[in-house]
Write a protein that binds this DNA or RNA. Structure first.
Length: 505
RNA sequence: GGCGGGUUGGCGGAGAGGUUACGCAGCGGAUUGCAAAUCCGUGAAGACCGGUUCGAUUCCGGUACCCGCCUCCA
């Protein structure tokens, strides 16, 4: 069996991964708080740990891995966003606005992560479905002397858990030294964090032994992982910014409820995505969403490739150059493997790279080696280990080199070339190139059109809604909804084709 | 202030204590109506200063710079 090595944030070491139960390998990834579209930084852990999920399924068998990724659908940011909507004129009750907001955001999230080729986790629990378990857990913490109720709040007593700070490598005293924590009179210690807080009327709340209220951040992940994976499981993952306080608090909560269990064996954290050398984050406002990219015409598969091009433990910059290179490489590979049977054993070098702490950049290098050695069937099979070159994700590549829509222009140019009318032939090629379509002459006299998807979508996005609908021939198309890359590029090529033929008359 | 991470060739980006990473770009050649593509070949690195070693870009220590967390964040 393939040995997998993973870096454990808890021990700061890379070690061989040994599941608690090889028949049921369990991993948990902290999912989004659902009040807004996912930005590209949110996509990194999803894609990275999707590869881990695929690797585990490959090694232990698809039926022997349980993957949980939650939705946090109760949170003050959600309430704040709903309040904005109310101010903006939404007259429905707050709870209803919130429900619509979270449902809609979850739908977007699914659309966007699907586009990136992320497999569906085994379970995608919503926090609001686990309020009962959270209350039970908080009660247990109080009984065990790790939490206390005060003024409608329930707080975790960090001094009651000597290990607090072990994951992030800091002591409670260190943290207080440079602290910017909320100092509330009802806190025994400034570092104590909220497990439960009171809800005013008009804000989501649930009945509890401490009055009507809602859970604090952190507790939902402890409750959901416990309910779906048990008190001990294998891997807990998330962005490095969650290491503290979120994961530290999760550990405190879970370990104090189940001191006999080990909670997560391995903690994995991905580094941040950067823009111009700075972390991409909502608070800095320097983010763009996955949807922004998709609408610009960047295929999800290309985004995935770029995200996997840097090891998860290092910060990465999203750049236009990376996007271009990724698209060129994938387009080449898709052409090479089209029609090839992928029912092959993946390249051992790819598997080895992935098994070595999820070295996706190394795996991609190994895929290049597959290409160089001419083994396209193995290339295809191996690429699927990292979720690339999958069926159903290559529509963009077909559209990119589609002949159909340009057929009449291509025929016209072939005739011109046959007649040694190079002036016309070159004119056609030049005009095509102005529209972002480059034409390569092949040795056998045929051509290979390639088009710049970004340019195509710039054209499409600039059109008013009515013209967009006419352009792609879909009356039901709505602004912001999903649109087929194939449809758009095809329509674009037809338009260009028509213009050139008119000009030649 | 506390804690953690990073610094590799023109660019991106890995592994390995001694042997070609890989990709893109470049350069040379083949091919070509032209352009592109393709194929073959090829140069180029390890922030700085010490230490360990027969040998370090790889291990250890220090310096500089950059970044993250400590406040909502993947």
């Amino acid at each position: 069996m393939t040995k997998i090595y993973l870096t454990n944030t808890k021990t700061r070491r890379k070690a061989e991964f040994t599941p608690l139960d090889p028949a049921n390998v369990r991993m948990y990834l902290c999912g989004p708080t659902v009040y807004d579209r996912a930005h590209l930084g949110n996509a990194r852990p999803v894609v990275v740990f999707d590869v881990l999920y695929r690797l585990l399924r490959h090694v232990y068998g698809p039926d022997h891995v349980t993957y949980v990724r939650n939705f946090t659908d109760v949170d003050d940011k959600i309430i704040a966003r709903a309040a904005e909507a109310a101010v903006a004129g939404d007259s429905r009750p707050m709870v209803e606005i919130i429900h619509t907001l979270t449902d809609e955001t979850i739908g977007w999230y699914h659309d966007d992560m699907d586009a990136l080729g992320a497999l569906k986790p085994t379970h995608e629990p919503r926090a609001t479905e686990y309020i009962g378990q959270m209350v039970a857990m908080i009660e247990a913490l109080i009984v065990r002397g790790h939490a206390y109720a005060a003024e409608g709040h329930v707080l975790f007593d960090v001094r009651s858990y000597p290990e607090y700070g072990a994951l992030s490598g800091r002591s409670v005293d260190d943290m207080i030294a440079g602290a910017r924590v909320e100092v509330a009179p009802y806190k025994r210690d400034p570092m104590d964090f909220v497990l439960w807080k009171p809800s005013d009327a008009g804000v989501p709340g649930w009945d509890s032994p401490w009055g009507r209220g809602r859970p604090g951040w952190h507790i939902e992940c402890s409750a959901m992982s416990d309910a779906l994976l048990g008190p001990s499981f294998d891997i807990h993952a998330g962005g490095i910014d969650l290491q503290f306080p979120h994961h530290e608090n999760e550990i405190a909560q879970s370990m104090c409820v189940h001191p006999e269990a080990g909670f997560a064996q391995v903690w994995m954290h991905n580094e941040m995505l950067q823009v111009e050398g700075k972390k991409m984050s909502k608070s800095l406002g320097n983010f763009f969403t996955v949807r922004d990219l998709l609408e610009k015409g960047v295929p999800g598969e290309v985004i995935r490739f770029v995200l996997l091009g840097t090891h998860y433990s290092k910060p990465m910059d999203w750049t236009e150059k990376k996007r271009e290179e990724a698209e060129a490489t994938l387009a080449k590979w898709r052409e090479l493997v089209s029609g090839v049977d992928a029912n092959q054993i993946p390249d051992p070098a790819v598997l080895e790279a992935l098994s070595d702490d999820l070295n996706t950049a190394g795996a991609i290098a190994a895929l290049h080696e597959c290409e160089n050695s001419g083994n396209v069937a193995v290339l295809k099979a191996s690429a699927r280990l990292v979720g690339l070159l999958e069926d159903g994700m290559g529509e963009w590549a077909v559209a990119r080199s589609a002949y159909y829509a340009l057929k009449s222009v291509l025929v016209a140019r072939a005739k011109a070339r046959a007649n040694k009318d190079f002036k016309t032939a070159d004119k056609i090629r030049n005009v095509l190139s102005e529209f972002g379509i480059s034409l390569e002459d092949m040795p056998d006299g045929r051509f290979k059109p390639k088009l710049d998807a970004i340019k195509v979508f710039e054209h499409f996005n600039a059109l008013p809604l009515q013209e967009k609908r006419a352009f792609i021939g879909d009356d039901s198309y709505m602004e912001g909804s999903k649109v087929s890359v194939f449809l758009v590029t095809n329509a674009y090529q037809q338009m260009v084709s028509k213009k050139i033929l008119e000009a030649l008359k």
